[in-house]
Each structure stands twice: as structure tokens, then as C-alpha cells.
């Protein structure tokens, strides 16, 4: 195992940022940490990169302890923090040279590692980093994180706030890096990006709720899931929420994803109920759950107060 994390905990005052997190990452694996803001992803990465001390538990990267062997850790890790943290008033070229120099290497020596990524920003190499577009900053930050030939790359939400096309391109870059044998640990709040990872850990509020392959995550969803569609979406939602047999209902694009509380549920019963309530063009279809369905389901079993949140607008409980 390249990364082993055992029972890590970290508190900031009263806030429990990590509540005992454990996982392993194999060499050459592309491992995703998926979860919303406040899940603990950044705290975990800061501990793994030796920038923050845990309260309890241990973490090792390539056999080096993140506390005792922090000097070794810093040599073998390439880290791209969530916030753009290159030197804004240095040029593209100067930033890259700077990072190569502090790791006792040169841009030339490891250029083949970053060639694919860097050639896209090379035309702007005399531009200050602060004047680059969001997509170009991201490519420069990735180049700087790779220039010392790290054993493992740690990327904290590299695609947050990035548009759908640039996100795809970024994941294509990661796939190529992975193919070259690099171990990659990446966090994201976008559930749809889970499918690009070998394995993912679903995180929420300081805990890992599940670790699995993207396909395996779907299998954890324990009940039949139906996609429901009708002519008026808001009316459909309200009707489903007041239906006594509804176990859960969440919007997914133009569909509502629905589970029923009965074991002998027949979709036809729901369809006729919705039509009686005045909805038209009703379709009820059995579907395969996605990563987001599973995370929502794991989050709701984790905390009952969230289930109440489902019936939003009547809260106060």
C-alpha cells in the first residue's frame, strides 16, 4: 500500500473535522475522496502532506510517517491545494523554475512528465500567473506539483468552480498521469466525477461512509429505485412527498428518484395515483442507482435530522 491511514482524528476547538478515518490506497491507484464542503477532505490532505498535525491516529505514505518523517514525505508528494497558491506576480516560467529549484531539480530534467500539460500553457510562459484564466492556472499548478517527479500526487478539489468541459479535460489529464504509473489521491464535491476513479471514499462530516469501486457503490443502494417523470415537475414533487408510501424522493435533473416503503410495490400503483392527482404524461421506470443516490441514502441513514430536511419548509424540528 502506498498510503495507509488509520483512525485519524482532528478537532478544531469544538468542531470535529475528522472522526476516525481509515483507508488504504494501492500503488498506481487513482483514488477519489468525494463529499461536500465540511466533509473533512482538506483536513485529511493537509495531514497527509505534513502541513497539519492530527490529534490521534496515524498516516503513512510510502512507509514514511507523516509526523516523524515529514522531510521525506515532502520530497515524495506533489500537492495541489484547493486555493490557487502559486506566485501571482511571477510569470508562468518563473513559477515552474522556482518549484523545480526548491526541490533541487530542473525543469529540463523532468520535462517529459509535464510536457502534455505544460505545452498548453507554454505560449503564455512570460505572462504573470495572476493574469491567467482559471483553466490555465489549474494547468500551471498541476505542472508545478509534478516537476519534482513525486511518487504520489495529492489534488484538493482541482475541479471546483470549473465548467463542465474543462472538468472533463482535467480528468483526461489525470487518466494519462495514472497510466504512467503515478498514484493519485484527488478530492471533489462533484459526484459524477466518481466514475473516473479506480475507487472512491464517500465522505460526509468527518467520516467515511463507504469505500468502493464506482460500480460497487451503486450496489450498496439497498432498495429498488424508480425514476418518475410527469408534465409539471414541482407539482410532481409535492404530490410524491405527500404520498403516504413514499420512503424517499429527490430531484435528479428532470426526474424524481423515488423509493417506496412497501415490499410488494408495483410501479403501476404509483402511476395511477399520480394521474388521479391530475398529473399527465406520467412515467415510472426502474433504474440503476448512481453514486449520488448512494451518498444521499448513506447520509440519510447516518443522520435522522437530514431525513426531516427532506420535507423542507416544514422544519423547525
Amino acid at each position: 500500500m502506498t498510503v495507509t491511514v488509520k483512525n485519524l482524528t482532528k478537532n478544531y476547538g469544538e468542531i470535529k473535522a475528522l472522526k476516525g478515518v481509515s483507508f488504504d490506497v494501492a500503488s498506481g491507484e487513482l483514488f477519489g475522496l468525494i463529499g461536500p464542503d465540511g466533509a473533512g477532505k482538506t483536513t485529511l490532505f493537509r495531514i497527509l502532506t505534513s502541513l497539519l498535525l492530527q490529534d490521534d491516529g496515524e498516516a503513512k505514505v510510502h512507509g514514511f510517517d507523516v509526523v516523524a518523517d515529514y522531510r521525506e514525505i515532502r520530497k515524495i508528494i506533489g500537492y495541489m491545494p484547493g486555493r490557487f497558491s502559486l506566485y501571482q506576480d511571477l510569470t508562468v516560467e518563473e513559477n515552474l523554475n522556482f518549484f523545480a529549484t526548491i526541490f533541487n531539480t530542473t525543469v529540463e530534467e523532468n520535462y517529459q512528465l509535464i510536457r502534455d500539460i505544460y505545452h498548453q500553457i507554454a505560449p503564455f510562459k512570460t505572462r504573470r500567473a495572476g493574469d491567467l484564466s482559471g483553466g490555465m492556472k489549474q494547468k500551471l499548478a498541476l505542472s508545478c506539483a509534478l516537476i519534482h517527479k513525486p511518487e504520489i500526487l495529492i489534488l484538493d478539489e482541482p475541479t471546483t468552480g470549473v465548467d463542465a468541459v474543462s472538468r472533463r479535460e482535467f480528468w483526461d489529464m489525470l487518466a494519462r498521469l495514472r497510466a504512467s504509473g503515478l498514484t493519485i489521491l484527488v478530492s471533489t464535491p462533484y459526484m459524477d466525477e466518481a466514475s473516473r476513479c479506480d475507487r472512491v471514499a464517500l465522505m460526509d462530516r468527518g467520516k467515511i461512509l463507504s469505500i468502493n469501486t464506482p460500480a460497487g457503490i451503486s450496489d450498496e443502494f439497498s432498495r429498488p429505485l424508480y425514476a418518475v417523470k410527469a408534465d409539471r415537475r414541482y407539482q410532481l414533487l409535492k404530490t410524491l412527498r405527500s404520498y403516504p408510501y413514499t420512503r424517499s424522493v429527490f430531484t435528479f435533473g428532470e426526474l424524481a428518484h423515488y423509493t417506496d416503503s412497501r415490499d410488494d410495490f408495483d410501479p403501476e400503483m404509483l402511476r395511477s395515483h399520480l394521474e388521479q392527482e391530475g398529473l399527465r404524461d406520467v412515467r415510472v421506470e426502474l433504474i440503476n442507482p448512481g453514486v449520488e443516490d448512494t451518498l444521499i441514502s448513506l447520509m440519510t441513514t447516518e443522520s435522522e435530522s437530514i431525513v426531516d430536511g427532506n420535507k423542507f419548509g416544514k422544519s423547525g424540528e
Binding site: 461536500p36 466533509a39 471546483t160 464535491p189 460526509d204 429527490f250 444521499i296
Partner: peptide, 24 residues
């Protein structure tokens, strides 16, 4: 402007409920 960035999938949907209500 991106009201739901980084928000968990349940809260994100609750937010859209507010939008629907207001639109209603």
C-alpha cells in the same frame, strides 16, 4: 450566482425547493 457550489447533495436539493417555492 452559483448558489449551490460545494453544498452536499441533500442540501443542494433543498435549496432548489426554495427556488421552486419562490417561483410558484
Amino acid at each position: 450566482d452559483e448558489p449551490t457550489g460545494g453544498v452536499d447533495p441533500i442540501t443542494r436539493r433543498q435549496f432548489w425547493d426554495l427556488i421552486y417555492e419562490a417561483s410558484d
